[in-house]
Design a protein around this nucleic acid. Sequence first.
DNA 1: CTTGACTCGTTGCATTCGCAACAATACATC
DNA 2: GATGTATTGTTGCGAATGCAACGAGTCAAG
Lengths: 141, 141
Amino acid sequence: MSDFDLTEFLPYQLAAAAARVSRAFAERYRDDFGISIPEWRVLVHLAHSGSVSVREIHARVEMDKSKVSRAAQRLTDAGYVEKRPHAEDRRLIDLRLTPAGQALVARLLPIAAQFQEELIASLGADHAALRRALGRIMETK
Amino acid sequence: MSDFDLTEFLPYQLAAAAARVSRAFAERYRDDFGISIPEWRVLVHLAHSGSVSVREIHARVEMDKSKVSRAAQRLTDAGYVEKRPHAEDRRLIDLRLTPAGQALVARLLPIAAQFQEELIASLGADHAALRRALGRIMETK
DNA sequence: CTTGACTCGTTGCATTCGCAACAATACATC
DNA sequence: GATGTATTGTTGCGAATGCAACGAGTCAAG
């Protein structure tokens, strides 16, 4: 009967909290738009960065190459994303939003912003420290 | 070219940070003990709570029933966990650590404690606020 | 005692995941 | 220009995941 309590273990708390938030967030998008979280990440990154390669997304966002590739393929099949060969380096592929993709993102972003605001509101004064702590974890690599 | 930056989106930061921590933590256990995170959670919960049912773990820890069941099965096959029918309610199964399981946990816990301490140390003054914030997320359900 | 509603743990199934190949391309060195 | 090394995106594959369905067991109402 050890005195080690899993629910007080920080890595567990982090994983559990992240899983809950992600699940709640994913529900909104799945039900209304049929979009998964990997797809959401690709869409948003394209909206933010314009024409971009798979490798670029893989490097900036926390996603495996294959995860990016498959998400991009699903989005392409759905008509939200377009693939073009890169002009100078033919190993690269330029991913970019189609007009339909841009319209989709325009509808997604306000929902995401509202979701985040509700989350932040529930955190109160600890919000800033949470952001700093998460940032430091990401730095530590 | 929207101004929405995914890397500043709190649900993403949370998921990314949790993924990194979990991956680093899982590596230590996989390489040295061949234990996955679901298995680690079951082991620790058994060490903490003694004889316990699958449902109990499912309720306390953030894990699907089937995830608990399969982790418990792997641990049983490995000789770390023993299954006994519950005396009063035969739908329930009492999971408990074998001596080998207890010995394993005794080796795992110091590593976990050290891992957590390193993590906490890297967070500095924001540690307490992080714990509060994560706790509030879990409360909000 | 029987019936029906509920609970527990397991399993089937489709999906997703990470990791390691792989072919195609780029580039530096000779 | 030929050759060897490195990089990019895709795919194959085994393992893990979540969800629903299932059989077995419990319990209360009649």
